[in-house]
Design a binder for these strands. Structure first.
Length: 423
DNA sequence: CATCCACAGGAAAACGCGGTTG
DNA sequence: CAACCGCGTTTTCCTGTGGATG
């Protein structure tokens, strides 16, 4: 076997088959030229090794993002250094506002400070994003505390679990901090879990316990038993969503780490930040958009400009609506299809009655029991609400009042929606 | 001005379905 | 196992609506 993939360009017209070889070389060279993502790991938090991750975090916080919140929480914790015990903390903030990240960063820094001053302090992270039951939550806590990976089997009495947790907690001298992510995620009886953490556990264990709970629901504490609130004696912290400036900084850092910086225009970043802050202020969403835009750029010009951002935002939009459509109930989708079939046949506007006729036909051809016009009319207003159609009410005087249903989707989506539907 | 179209949308009854009880 | 219940969905029935039309 001869090695053909040298770094140099193959000279054309060398041997038979060189055409193909040079074609491949050519394509390869071109894709090399457009390469923009140098280090994809930095665009995906899960893929980053632990050490790198904390490095990145440090840099983020060095840029004075979330400084106010960090300061407040740090202040809240300082009494630990004097051997005090701060009350439980409740941290509110929407998804992607950096609650978890900030707290992890802060606690690890705090731990270092404690180490330097010989104050015994440890923290544990309990992630309740997935599990839901009281038992599952206890399990997570137990796992975090005793460090092993084994799951406690089901069927073990809950008292035993509590016993184990208390035991493990007692192993740690000094202050023990539990960081509970998505603390509102316990389904049947969140009260029991919190009662245990806030009331039972501190009594059973020798160490001082500090609870920090994260949630994205502002009304969470209203759903709680007031008695729990009283013995938690909690302090509130609020993380408001990132604004465009914060997002811009975060994005810039990512770009420096992951992309070829001189192929990225500043305006593009500003645009992404603006998009994301207008939508939700979710940093993850912003990075997601950045990744998408970078990929678009790689496939086309190799530069990341505002245009690439726009197309990326567009495709993201399309993905979102298609996902929405896929998630619709069967009947709702039928009505939606009926709307667009009717629109295709008739003019740019159709009435409820027309849609209902088409819908009936569709039902007959698909052997589905049709619903009443009343119901369909409700669904039309539902679809309107979700922006899948445009259906304002108009009065046509003598000819009654109806909804004037018009399209509000891109033709490509409609095309895909109507695939497999005849006429 | 009254009329009347072609629906909207409220209210209540009926249905369907999983879960519980005697 | 039937009877019953709770709850969301669907049907039935109904009243209301705004302006072109006669």
């Amino acid at each position: 076997m001869e090695k053909t993939s040298t770094g140099k360009h193959a000279q054309p017209g060398h041997k038979d088959g060189d055409r193909t070889i040079s074609l491949i070389e050519d394509l390869y060279a071109r894709s090399k030229k457009n390469v923009l993502i140098l280090n994809p790991d930095y665009l995906d938090d899960d893929k980053l090794p632990e050490g790198e991750r904390t490095e990145v975090l440090k840099e983020i916080f060095n840029r004075r993002i979330r400084e106010r919140q960090l300061k407040r929480i740090a202040q809240h914790l300082t009494s630990i250094l004097d051997g005090g015990q701060p009350p439980a903390a409740l941290v509110y903030g929407p998804t992607g506002s950096g609650k978890t990240v900030s707290l992890l960063h802060l606690l690890s820094s705090f731990q270092k400070v404690c180490q330097a001053r010989n104050v015994p302090f440890r923290y544990f992270y309990v992630d309740l994003t997935s599990p839901k039951t009281y038992f599952g939550a206890l399990n997570k806590v137990a796992l975090a505390l005793d460090g092993s990976t084994r799951r406690y089997r089901k069927g073990i009495p809950i008292e035993y679990m509590q016993e184990r947790i208390a035991e493990a907690a007692s192993q740690h001298p000094g202050t023990l901090c539990l960081l509970i992510d998505e603390a509102d995620n316990i389904r049947p009886n969140p009260d029991a879990f919190l009662t245990f953490l806030g009331k039972t556990l501190p009594r059973k264990t020798s160490c001082r316990l500090v609870l920090i709970m994260l949630t994205n629901r502002l009304d969470w504490e209203k759903a709680l038993d007031p008695r729990i609130l009283s013995f938690l004696k909690k302090t509130d912290f609020i993380f408001e969503p990132y604004d465009a400036l914060d997002l811009y900084e975060i994005l810039k850092l990512r770009v420096e780490k992951a992309l070829d910086t001189n192929k990225v225009e500043e305006g593009a970043l500003r645009k992404i930040a603006a998009y994301a802050s207008r939508e939700t202020g979710d940093a993850r969403k912003a990075v997601e958009l950045l990744v998408k835009a970078a990929k678009v750029a790689e496939d086309t010009t190799g530069r990341l400009t505002q245009r690439e951002v726009d197309t990326a935002a567009e495709t993201l939009e399309v993905d979102k609506t298609e996902e929405l459509i896929r998630a619709l109930a069967a009947q709702q989708r039928l009505v939606l299809i009926a709307c667009y079939v009717a629109l295709r046949r008739g003019r740019s506007k159709v009435s409820t009655g027309q849609v209902y006729e088409v819908y009936n036909e569709l039902c007959r051809s698909q052997r589905v029991k049709p619903l009443t016009e009343r119901r369909v009319s409700d669904m039309i207003s539902f679809l309107d609400l979700y922006g899948l159609i445009n259906a304002p009410m108009v009065s046509r005087g003598r000819y009654g009042q109806t909804r004037e249903i018009a399209s509000s989707l891109r033709s490509e989506i409609v095309e895909r929606l109507l695939q497999g539907v005849d006429e």
